[in-house]
Design a binder for these strands. Structure first.
Lengths: 111, 111
DNA sequence: TATTATGGTTTGTAACACAAACCTATCTTT
DNA sequence: AAAGATAGGTTTGTGTTACAAACCATAATA
């Protein structure tokens, strides 16, 4: 019953941080997405989107591919298999915590 | 469709932080809980539990009542109405994001 | 009377999230 | 052709903060 709470208290901040949770969740439903699309989706500034993506790339959770489309630079982002596993597990941990707590109604926690 | 993502990117860090999310979620299912109980539940150190609780108290999300039981000090923690609202809304925002993303399978986000 | 345990709080520091500044290339206007 | 403006990003500066470790007070125990 309580393992879910310990697990949560130790959640991976890299994934849990709001902006990155939004990014990874969006990417988990897309084949791929580009920089501008992600910026509009999340409302992040370019600067912060850039650093969040770099961090996810360093951690091996996303792949970033830079190309030109016509004369414009274009940054394409895709989840890696590890990234997909990480975001799925994260949501499972969150759901488990929430579900476990529900079943608890009225407990009095003293000791 | 995308509002949930913008909302998520702007989630309240005070509530979202893993340890505090666990604490608030636990408290939302308990009448009340004491320091030692919460420490065992979350696996946090005393020091960090103490500072997280202080932060939640300052923000008005929990009430803290210090008393003695026999000869031992005892710190009792309870969610305030605002705290209850905050954690419920937070879970709703998370669930909404997750649900919205699911419906999206296969979209190709470029532009 | 040390020493250990219990129940906490305070402090020092390294990480980090954001805003703002910057960069490079291409259109557009004058 | 020079000067903005726009697009698509990256780098930097700084205040916040989460954690570990040190600390404190009291009460049992050896």
């Amino acid at each position: 019953m309580t393992e879910a709470f310990e697990a949560l208290a130790g959640l991976d901040r890299l994934v849990h941080e709001p902006a990155r949770l939004a990014l990874l969740t969006a990417l988990s439903a897309c084949r791929s997405a580009d920089f501008v699309f992600l910026q509009r989706l999340t409302g992040l500034t370019k600067g912060n989107l850039s650093t969040h993506l770099s961090k996810l790339e360093e951690a091996g959770l996303v792949e970033i591919e830079k190309q030109f489309i016509g004369k414009k630079p274009n940054t394409l982002v895709r989840l890696t298999p590890e990234g997909r596993a990480a975001i799925e597990q994260h949501w499972q941990a969150l759901e488990r915590l929430h579900r476990d707590a529900q079943q608890w109604q009225g407990v009095d926690g003293r000791q």
